[in-house]
Design a protein around this nucleic acid. Sequence first.
DNA 1: ATGAAAGCGCTAACAG
DNA 2: CTGTTAGCGCTTTCAT
Lengths: 359, 359
Amino acid sequence: MLSNSSGKAHWTIYDIAREIGVSAKTVSRVLNHKGGVGPEVRARILALMEEVGYQPHIGARSLRSHQNACIGVTLPSPAEEVPVSQGFLLWIFTYLYDTFGSQGEFLGFDLNPFATVEGYDYGRGIWQQLFKACLIAGPMRSDDQVIVRIHKSGVPYVALGRLDSLPECSSAAVDYEEGARLSAAFMIGRGHRRVAMLGGFAGFQPGVERLRGHRRALDEAGIAYDPNLVRFVGFDTAGVAAGVRELLADPTITALVDASGTENGAGLNEGAQQAGRVIGRDFELVSWTYAHNAAVVREATAHLWLPVREAAAQGIEQLAEWLQGRREGPIKVLHTPVLDDRAKEHEVPTPRRLFDVKD
Amino acid sequence: MLSNSSGKAHWTIYDIAREIGVSAKTVSRVLNHKGGVGPEVRARILALMEEVGYQPHIGARSLRSHQNACIGVTLPSPAEEVPVSQGFLLWIFTYLYDTFGSQGEFLGFDLNPFATVEGYDYGRGIWQQLFKACLIAGPMRSDDQVIVRIHKSGVPYVALGRLDSLPECSSAAVDYEEGARLSAAFMIGRGHRRVAMLGGFAGFQPGVERLRGHRRALDEAGIAYDPNLVRFVGFDTAGVAAGVRELLADPTITALVDASGTENGAGLNEGAQQAGRVIGRDFELVSWTYAHNAAVVREATAHLWLPVREAAAQGIEQLAEWLQGRREGPIKVLHTPVLDDRAKEHEVPTPRRLFDVKD
DNA sequence: ATGAAAGCGCTAACAG
DNA sequence: CTGTTAGCGCTTTCAT
């Protein structure tokens, strides 16, 4: 890089202005593609910028004009609690690149959420005015407060999940309540009266929705809710297996909805085996999956597809439009899960998981 | 968030200072964990910061003190030319998280390099003073100029590759020259005199090193270099197959070093088949891989392991130390490839690729 | 079409 | 231990 007239390493708009013989404001106008500069002056300024490799100080710009530096990505819960899979993060990443890459944006990842459980604040990138927009990449806790502040901040954002406590929240989500209702109603429609549910995401919004949907299906069929037929598990195979075993210990249970969100066929099979039951013979199974036309368990009577990636894709696109002023917030994307009861062929793949499972 | 005395949404150190009855500088000292503040005042300031959810403006800090916001990651060549695999990028991210995550850092990823071939400048994050440190995640072109400016900038950085034109460059790399020398020398040691090399990364430093290493092995054995025995290919299976076929069309060739870096067993087999030759029967093969104890082709006489991940891991660790002032730059990590001529069992896995291959 | 002045929020340098 | 002043590089506001 050429050094400027004052011998510094970095050129500023003042240096450019002095060299050309105009004011800093004129250089600023050129930098921001604004009018009010004669074509000849503009050309000379651009040529000098090119020659010396001028680049604006992104922090100074953010300080003065509130045009922050990055498209932010943050996780609303520590990795130990909701282990968003690397594959899903990468998918998000790729999608953000497709949407924002050609516009010369930077992506900012808040690494803190990975690490700290205490004093957990996933909005740092916004408070510190680093993020000009933000993707909240995961389910929120039922009592989440950070999202309220993000919502009020005015920064375009989209959460990959809804929140009962903030219905106006900008979100691109899947309707888990309807998923749970559909799953249980499907079983009831097939003549089952004792339908168990293996839930997931206890303490998080998707967990609340699961329970509500399940109860609604029972209500609609006039069946009383029995809390013993619902169990919430985490993301480890042993936990999934234990949950299944405990539910199936009740011989009156003839139907199980795997709404754990773990896509863990091994855990399901293990639990059934421990209870001395065989999937598809002794009881019917609906298993939830984030992948279309993939089978968690081939012997399942049906799969419920949760189009999370599809919702996220739409959310990211609308986030870009919001950021560019082509639409207003908040974003309201809500996809309905799809129940698929076609028999699964031998070749149907195991889903790529959205969350990591500990074996 | 509580609003401050002047009714603004964001609190500044001035607002905190006024509320407590001290100067802004005192608040700044507390913010930066510096001495010179009485314990009682410090406690009151911290309490108020906590109460109102104060967060510093990261851009203002960067402007004044040159403490930039993010640990940067950037790609020195467009994805079309060097398709760094998503798996490797993710590995890098995970490693950066392990190293920096607990310190509340942000990761900054330059999306621009993905998109534009023209006006390609992978150093934007540094010029714009967004990056406080930078990982250059991929091989550099032989005529790379950007790295020179990065090197001069004073920002701690590490490139995952060396560069002849800038030997003092901060790098965490694998010695491809020695890899090529080892591979060819191994073949010569087994009695071969006509050793072909399928190269990769033409126009990039790793390509230059491959050629130099190959020639050195021949020199050391007193064998004349024949340019017809070397072919450079890209990252598509058809290209790999064509390169192999063209080399093997010469019946005097009895040894092939696959230094393509594609880990593409299918392409190698296809090319051999097209030439009417069988690996391990009609000619011997040494295949290069980025994975330890994985087999690109089971029939290969040997595999050369390029410990790129291992070098990168060490580079990232030293980058963290450099950034924290626990050591000086530049970083000089150079790992030597390891030739492994043990027979590969049936169960040995195909390597996870470091670069994407187009089928 | 262009410029002068002010100030965004923070910290370095210096003063007490 | 604490405060004052100035200024980082840019853009806003207002003037010409």
